[in-house]
């Protein structure tokens, strides 16, 4: 069993209490291409990982042509430091870029693993048993085979409150701490502190880093956190018994703010 942790900065990594417990360090953003880390940030963390004998995993988001281009350069630059690292993709367009880096291990990210997982599922307002909401993209063995043929070595998912059905005999990572329930490109935060607020897809000043908005209603069993362009819910750091022997890596997301 491998253990990983998602970190947001070198400082956070250096101050980790139980660094020895982790084999893998996850860094990057899964949702917004405007928050792809810079080479200098990534280099510092990657070099720290090499020094401490940890595997570095770069998390990547959904991508427009602009984001693809930025990531292409970032991956090329860090592969010049060392070719042994992993990339978690959340956009299939990145596969073509990664063909040029055969030593990089490719993980299939949680945004691409589709599933019903809103906070309304556990309250009963849907009038259906939560057990009916455990199916997901990985429930389709033909899709798994197809993706494995594309050189995808691992599948990474979070565990929503109702649980999840997972296949056997695949490399599966469980993210613990939160679950992503939606992603948008119409982010609510750009210019949100000005009178020119217009809610268009335009360049932003990363206003999302200043605050997190939550939504609560009687129909949700827990608040929804609007973190940049994604909505997440917090989840328990507990692994359901039924998943025993179906995963071989755990990644801890210590704080919901880590997703910013």
């Amino acid at each position: 069993m491998e253990f990983g942790i998602k970190i947001s900065s070198l400082e956070e990594l250096q101050n980790l209490k139980y660094l020895d417990k982790y084999n893998l360090i996850y860094f990057g953003n899964e949702f917004c291409e405007r928050k792809i880390p810079t080479f200098s940030e990534t280099k510092e963390i990657f070099e720290f990982c090499i020094k401490k004998n940890k595997t570095f995993v770069l998390l990547t988001p959904l991508l427009t042509n602009l984001g693809i281009n930025n990531l292409k350069h970032l991956i090329k630059d860090i592969s010049e430091i060392n070719k042994k690292f992993e990339v978690t993709i959340n956009d299939l367009g990145l596969l073509e870029i990664l063909e040029a880096f055969p030593e990089v291990k490719i993980n299939y990210g949680r945004v691409l693993i589709r599933m019903k997982k809103g906070p309304e599922i556990m309250t009963g307002c849907l009038k259906e048993s939560p057990d009916n909401f455990k199916d997901n993209s990985l429930s389709n063995p033909e899709l798994l085979d197809f993706l494995k043929d594309l050189n995808i070595k691992r599948f990474e998912t979070d565990v929503p409150p109702q649980g999840i059905d997972l296949p056997e005999n695949s490399n599966i990572t469980l993210y613990l701490g939160n679950s992503v329930i939606s992603v948008t490109r119409r982010c609510i935060y750009p210019k949100c502190n000005t009178s020119e607020y217009n809610y268009k897809i335009e360049p932003c000043k990363k206003e999302c880093l200043n605050q997190i908005i939550t939504k609560e209603t009687k129909y949700f069993d827990r608040p929804v956190f609007i973190i940049g362009n994604a909505e997440l819910i917090k989840t328990e750091m507990i692994i359901p018994e039924e998943l025993k022997n179906k995963f071989n890596r755990i990644v801890i997301f210590p704080n919901i703010k880590n997703n910013l």
């Binding site: 959904l62 019903k116 809103g118 309304e120 992503v180 329930i181 992603v183 948008t184």
Partner: peptide, 10 residues
């Protein structure tokens, strides 16, 4: 508001 393919809400 969410991308059609990336919304897992019910």
């Amino acid at each position: 508001r969410n991308l059609d393919g990336f919304c897992s809400r019910c």
